[in-house]
Design a protein around this nucleic acid. Structure first.
Lengths: 210, 210, 210, 210
DNA sequence: AATGAATGAGAATTCATTCAT
DNA sequence: AATGAATGAATTCTCATTCAT
């Protein structure tokens, strides 16, 4: 009741033999690849094969398939969070925000990343904590962008995250080539800008674009 | 992209006994419900049960599960196409366009519609024809909106469809309540408008909004 | 609320195609054999093989292994109940009672019957109804034996059933040959008799014995 | 019956480091608990956990699960043997005999002792030696009881052991509460007594009872 | 000796699909 | 045409056992 965040069953055990840690990492990497390619209904066997371990090893590290999916998503969210934080460091905040969104969508499309999970097993995945961290990063970036006048005052973090996930999932659909991606995001970004900053022109990369 | 038209296994046979036609419809309806509720990994057995027919009947009408999924999507796309065409008839074209998008997203969220299929069974679904019809409807609506000056000249149909599917898939994610939906779409719509029409204000429903 | 006994999930469906009924019976027979030979931890695969059906067929009829085990036990109990009822018809009730116990133990030993289940999965098997029927049969036989003066007045049905199951399970242990069985039961039967009827002698088959 | 003595894999090694001996004991204790609670199909991992050692340690001491089961049974039999021998020392031999049986059954019920093993892993357990020791103890007690006239002359040790194991296994079945236990054993004990000693009355605890 | 990670052969169960009725 | 029983490959998960640390 007094320790608010981290659930008991979460994350990798802290003390772990070197070989175990190595295998855990290999399994996670393999799983990300496999699920990225074939969606979350890909078989655990294939993950094991790709990781070069026996099936039992996968289940030792992640007792159920759900656990494995959750772990991947946590990893992904953590990586995104770190990217936000990094981008937040340098230069123009709005550029950072838009770059972050573009980059994430780009990556989602290229690696057919696991974002698609959210659709399928989403609800059951209990990722509140990790999402919260990402949200905080986005919140910061958004606030600074708004202070700089580059994003409309009335935009809320919720909306940015919603646009982000929507775009990521959309990017998995057939027909989203890089160009369509860029043009679609340009529209979204323009919707985020205050009237004064609007391009109104063909969304060719300008100082505030992409 | 270049393969022109109707594959062999497509569409319902033209000559069909009345009861067979009735069954086909019931199966499609049941399948839409079931897959909407449980995702595309729901079992064909459950579809049969919900439709009140035997499993064999389902496979008689749709020789593989993929065929069933494809048929549902074709149905859905046809319904959307019809809605676009209807909306195109009356009044302000931009209102019609935005209403169409809002309505579709709304419905996707409410019925957890099968749009999520695209993620799972992805490319395998060969829906080019049906999508093409929908695209034409959207194209018409978009062109008229642009002629009326309510949508930026440089927006292309691709982008509208991309935004539409992205928003639909996003709407399936956890946490998209109706309000978030409305606010997110308001941003997107603002991005579609030419500078002169922009709200720049809190996306409360105005003449140009939602 | 008004139909007291039979639970919903119980027993075979009433209407069944002939081939299905045939398979159901073959599966039950095979299962009884297999579990008798190897105990309840024998694999469902082996049951399927012995029955000459595919594994899926077994699970179609009995959705879980537990269901299969329960069905066997119900069958067995029903058979015993019928035997009690039959024996109750003819002649001397005490002879009938003792014969029933002897016969059941004998059969348990010979077929290594599934009685052993009670030990392992016992608790979870929900057989109250079937056991109740058997108990009623035994009750009747016991009451008549007592009225005839051949069994002590103070013996209760519970005790007879307890002695029955104990003997059946004991009969599965190593070393219970037919002779030991007979001698052990003779002691038990003597304990059931009123002093006047006691043999006190070597339990060779006499008029009241075995 | 004719194979005389100790197999190779039997019993604890004579020379053992103190900690090893301690571990061996803890494993045995844990295993008895675990198998008592969950039956012999409980996992070796759980035994290790309960004992507070690593799984490898369990297999170091008991190369196969069978070995572990056998060791537990040997322990149990040894304890019973010792109890017989102790009881044999004091007072009335028949009381001692009946007390021994009652106590053993009671304990079997309470601790769900491992006796049930016999059903599962059955014959494979090679315990002849240990059983032999127990049998000798029972033989002695029985002989003295018979000499004292409190047990029928024609009863043989086999029968007493058979009744003992049957009652123990029966006591594991659902529904054997302490009262039923007492009443059932009272019947058995009465069957063991010579006619002169019989109670014939309700098996309330009397001088010759329980 | 002890540890605990890895192994991999099963086990139960599901489900798309086929086919006899 | 419809039925629904049967099929059997695939999947998730378990666990006794081995072996590197």
């Amino acid at each position: 009741m007094t320790t608010p965040s981290t659930p008991a069953t979460d994350g990798p055990p802290q003390r772990m033999r070197a070989d175990a840690r190595r295998n855990r990492a290999r399994i996670l990497a393999a799983a990300e690849e496999v699920f990225a390619e074939k969606g979350p209904s890909a078989s655990t066997e294939e993950v094991a094969a790709r990781a070069g371990v026996a099936i039992g090893t996968v289940f030792k590290h992640f007792p159920t398939k759900q656990d494995l999916l959750r772990a991947i998503m946590k990893d992904l969210l953590a990586r995104l969070t770190q990217e936000v934080d990094t981008l937040a460091g340098d230069g123009d905040p709005a550029t950072a925000l838009f770059d972050f969104v573009s980059g994430t969508v780009e990556q989602a499309a290229r690696k057919r990343t696991v974002v698609g999970l959210l659709a399928e097993s989403g609800a059951g995945l209990q990722l509140a904590d990790s999402v919260q961290l990402l949200r905080q990063g986005v919140e910061g970036l958004l606030a600074r962008s708004q202070r700089a006048g580059a994003v409309r005052e009335d935009v809320r973090p919720d909306e940015v995250l919603a646009l982000l996930t929507a775009a990521c999932q959309g990017a998995l659909s057939a027909g989203w080539d890089r160009d369509l991606q860029r043009r679609t995001l340009a529209i979204v970004f323009d919707g985020l800008r205050p009237p004064a900053w609007r391009t109104g022109a063909d969304p060719a990369p300008g100082p505030r674009d992409l």
